[in-house]
Simulated assay, not measured.
Amino acid sequence: MQKHPMTKEGADALQAELNKLKKEERPRISEAIAVARDHGDLKENAEYHAAREEQGLVEARINQIEHILSLAQVIDITKLPQTGKIVFGSTVTVVNLDTDDEITYKIVGNEESDIKANKISVNSPIARALVGKEEGDEVVVQAPGGNIDYEIVEVQYI
């Protein structure tokens, strides 16, 4: 199986979620099922059915996280040589040369990308254009609405 890159931060967050699901949610749901079962007839017991449904969702998420982590190649950006080049895990500040808008992105794995948090997948058009470049370089990103010209302002390994 092919490994997928993941930042240490992303792997730690998934591990924390997994621990919470296994140590807190699983026992809580098992207790809710036991309490609901004590209420009698299971056919018309909404509490029981809701708890069983929640149990299924939690178990599915546990399996999903375990699978993701089993395929993760965890990369700690702080331990990589700081060459000034943009690599997986870098935090990059760019300025749009047409609008002068400045934005900072962190280049992460597919599983951790979150555009609202400015975490972009290493496979995104922006990240693909940035990887290998360094401060002061200009890049052209082919976006659905046309090409966007950026200048790289800062590269951080945080």
Score class of each variant (00 low, 15 high):
residue 17 E to A: 03
residue 17 E to G: 01
residue 18 L to R: 00
residue 18 L to P: 02
residue 19 N to E: 05
residue 19 N to Y: 00
residue 20 K to M: 01
residue 21 L to G: 00
residue 22 K to P: 00
residue 22 K to T: 01
residue 23 K to N: 11
residue 23 K to A: 11
residue 24 E to P: 00
residue 24 E to V: 00
residue 25 E to F: 09
residue 26 R to H: 14
residue 27 P to V: 00
residue 27 P to W: 00
residue 28 R to W: 11
residue 30 S to R: 14
residue 30 S to T: 11
residue 30 S to Q: 15
residue 31 E to D: 05
residue 31 E to I: 04
residue 33 I to R: 06
residue 33 I to S: 06
residue 34 A to Q: 13
residue 35 V to N: 08
residue 37 R to I: 10
residue 37 R to E: 11
residue 38 D to C: 07
residue 40 G to N: 14
residue 41 D to P: 01
residue 43 K to D: 10
residue 43 K to L: 11
residue 45 N to T: 07
residue 46 A to K: 10
residue 46 A to M: 05
residue 47 E to H: 09
residue 47 E to D: 04
residue 47 E to R: 02
residue 47 E to Y: 06
residue 49 H to A: 12
residue 49 H to F: 12
residue 50 A to K: 15
residue 50 A to V: 13
residue 50 A to F: 14
residue 50 A to D: 14
residue 50 A to S: 14
residue 51 A to L: 03
residue 52 R to H: 09
residue 52 R to F: 09
residue 52 R to A: 13
residue 52 R to T: 13
residue 52 R to K: 13
residue 52 R to Q: 14
residue 53 E to Q: 09
residue 53 E to D: 11
residue 53 E to V: 07
residue 54 E to V: 04
residue 55 Q to L: 11
residue 55 Q to I: 08
residue 58 V to F: 08
residue 58 V to Y: 11
residue 58 V to W: 12
residue 60 A to N: 06
residue 60 A to F: 01
residue 60 A to M: 06
residue 60 A to C: 05
residue 61 R to L: 03
residue 62 I to F: 04
residue 63 N to L: 09
residue 65 I to H: 02
residue 65 I to L: 07
residue 65 I to R: 03
residue 67 H to R: 14
residue 67 H to Y: 13
residue 68 I to H: 05
residue 68 I to R: 01
residue 68 I to Y: 08
residue 68 I to C: 08
residue 68 I to K: 05
